[in-house]
C-alpha cells in the first residue's frame, strides 16, 4: 500500500522543486513499480490485486505529473497552496500575445505551403524554442520562491498552456497530412 499522504516528490524520494533529475525519477519509478505493479500480484488474492492496482495507478499519475514540465509546474503551485483553477492567471505580456497570433496564422497557412511537412517542422521548432525559454524562466521563478516570483510563475504557466496547446494542434495537423498520403 503506497502512502497516499506523501506528495509525488516524496513518493520518489526527490527534493520538492521544479528541476527534477529525470534519470533518478525514471529509476525510482521502475523500482517502485517492480514492487507494486499488478503483474506482481497476478495470482494473489482479490484484495492484494486491488491494493496493487491502486498503488500502481498512483505511481503512474505521479510519474506523468513530474515528467511533464507543465503538469509539474502546476502541481508545484498546487503544493504551494495556489489554486490554479479558480485563478487562471491572465497574460499581460503584449509581445507574447502578438507572437501567439503570428504562430496561429502560420499554423493556419501550412496546408497551402509547397512543402507542408517542412513548414510543420519549422513551426514546431519555433514553438519548442519558445517553450524552452519559458521553462528556463519558470525554473528561475520557482528558485527565487518569493510571492512576487510565484505570481509571475502563474503567468508563465498560462503562457506554457498556450504553447503546448498549439503544439498539440500542430501534431494533429501533421496526422491529417499523414492520412492524406
Amino acid at each position: 500500500m503506497l502512502d497516499f499522504s506523501k506528495n509525488y516528490f516524496e513518493l520518489f524520494g526527490l527534493p520538492v522543486g521544479f528541476e527534477v533529475d529525470s534519470n533518478r525519477l525514471a529509476d525510482r519509478y521502475r523500482e517502485l513499480q517492480r514492487a507494486i505493479h499488478p503483474d506482481r500480484y497476478a495470482n494473489a488474492t482479490g484484495q492484494e490485486k486491488r491494493l496493487s492496482m491502486q498503488g500502481s495507478i498512483r505511481l503512474n499519475d505521479a510519474l506523468n505529473t513530474l515528467k511533464k514540465p507543465l503538469l509539474r509546474a502546476q502541481y508545484l503551485l498546487e503544493l504551494k497552496g495556489v489554486n490554479l483553477e479558480t485563478k487562471g492567471a491572465s497574460i499581460t505580456d503584449g509581445g507574447f500575445l502578438m507572437e501567439q497570433m503570428e504562430l496561429r496564422e502560420e499554423l493556419a497557412g501550412i496546408k497551402q505551403q509547397a512543402d507542408p511537412y517542412d513548414a510543420v517542422a519549422s513551426l514546431m521548432n519555433r514553438i519548442k524554442s519558445n517553450i524552452q525559454g519559458l521553462l528556463r524562466e519558470i525554473s528561475e521563478q520557482f528558485e527565487t520562491d518569493t510571492p512576487q516570483a510565484l505570481k509571475q510563475s502563474q503567468e508563465t504557466v498560462s503562457k506554457l498552456q498556450f504553447l503546448y496547446k498549439l503544439s498539440t494542434q500542430v501534431e494533429e495537423l501533421e496526422e491529417e497530412l499523414d492520412e492524406a498520403l
Partner: peptide, 25 residues
C-alpha cells in the same frame, strides 16, 4: 479470511515499497 488479513496484506505491500525505496537509498 481475506477480511481477517486485510491489515497484514497492507503491511506486506508497505514492506515491499520500503524495500524498493531502501534499495534506492
Amino acid at each position: 479470511l481475506e477480511k481477517s488479513c486485510e491489515f497484514y496484506v497492507e503491511r506486506r505491500m508497505n514492506a515491499n515499497i520500503h524495500k524498493a525505496m531502501a534499495g534506492q537509498k
